[in-house]
Computed example of a mutant assay.
Amino acid sequence: MPAILGTLRRLVLTPKLRAVTFADRGFPAAGTPAAEHLEAIPQSVVCGFEWGIEHRGLWDVERRLATVSPELRGFAYEGAAMAYAVRDAMAGGKGTRTKELLEGPGLPHIFLTYIGIGFAMARLPRVLWRGIMPDLEGVPFFPTMSWLAVDGYGFDRAYFHTRQVVDEQRPFRPYPWTGRPDYFPRAADQGVGRALWFIQGARPAQVAAAVEAFPAARRADLWSGVGLAATFAGGCSAEGLAEVVRLAGGHADEVALGAVFAGTARMAAGHLPEHSKLGVEVFTGGSVEDAVILAATVAVEHDDAGPGESPAYELWRERIRAHFRGSVTKAA
């Protein structure tokens, strides 16, 4: 049985399942079939958080996460990573739960567990962010891909503070993540783009209108987030995905970039839903296997970024974009 302290943590810190529904959030697509599909994702995150925040041992949490369907399991791991990051912060930054999760059973879901750390960041004061990302030397894509934590932070802020982040388009304050405060708002905007797919219920015209309402300088990062969410989370037909490419116009390469990351993450987790396969095919014009090979071939090591250059993460993204520049729009 979980300790009393764990039960208290769960009762105090775990969001209610109803609080993440589209109706409770006031999202315009509430009640649609796509909303029902998409709502299962944040609810899976909440379940993972609840298990991670309450139970004492990783084994107990892992066994519970294994009961979640393969399509949603990575999202439950997001929630567990969020919980462990919060618990480590509550331990004065000396906790090792997050590291043990990400290097252990969470490794196949490393893309999503990074995002879960970002969810924790959205609930912690910035003074506690300094040690929130554990040293994961030897883990693939670390530390380059740790920018997904900032992406997760941006998603969380947009999902739960929609008026300020989406309607009022308040910019994110810089933070020296991996020593690059200048890139922090861009990475957060990539998460906002993912959130727009949820907020607008996977409806291409409404998603595009929401992106285009932002200043032009922010739209590229938003579109890459749309591509990632549409591919990983689903909720749209092949015709709708083709409409996304058309509406993205000159940013179709950003949508393809997001699809490449989503396909790579799905393959790493060992489960490829049909909607993710479809998203990669429509957005990139190729197969998921092609996307995985591309991501691995053009990957940028952290040390490759020289002084004054973009972070390795953005250099990696640019190499993927360059592969699609012009070609996806013509194919659509």
Rank of each mutant, 00 (worst) to 15 (best):
A296N: 09
E309I: 14
A295V: 02
E274F: 02
D304N: 12
V288R: 00
T284K: 14
H302E: 14
H275D: 01
D303E: 13
G286I: 05
T284P: 08
T284C: 11
V298R: 02
H302F: 11
K277Q: 01
A305L: 03
S310P: 04
L294P: 11
S276C: 10
V280Y: 01
A291W: 01
V280L: 05
G285T: 04
A296K: 13
D303R: 14
E274A: 11
E289W: 03
L294E: 11
A295Q: 12
E274H: 06
D290K: 05
D304H: 14
G286K: 12
S276Q: 11
K277C: 00
I293M: 10
G306H: 10
D290Q: 12
E274C: 07
T297C: 02
V292M: 07
V300M: 13
G279I: 02
E274D: 15
T297P: 02
A296M: 03
P307E: 12
V298Q: 08
E309M: 15
G285A: 11
H275A: 08
G279R: 04
A296I: 00
V288G: 04
A295H: 05
G286C: 06
K277V: 00
V292Q: 12
G285H: 07
L278N: 02
E309L: 05
V280G: 00
E309T: 15
P311L: 07
E281S: 08
S287P: 09
K277P: 03
G285L: 09
G279S: 00
D304S: 14
V288T: 07
E309R: 15
H275P: 03
F283C: 00
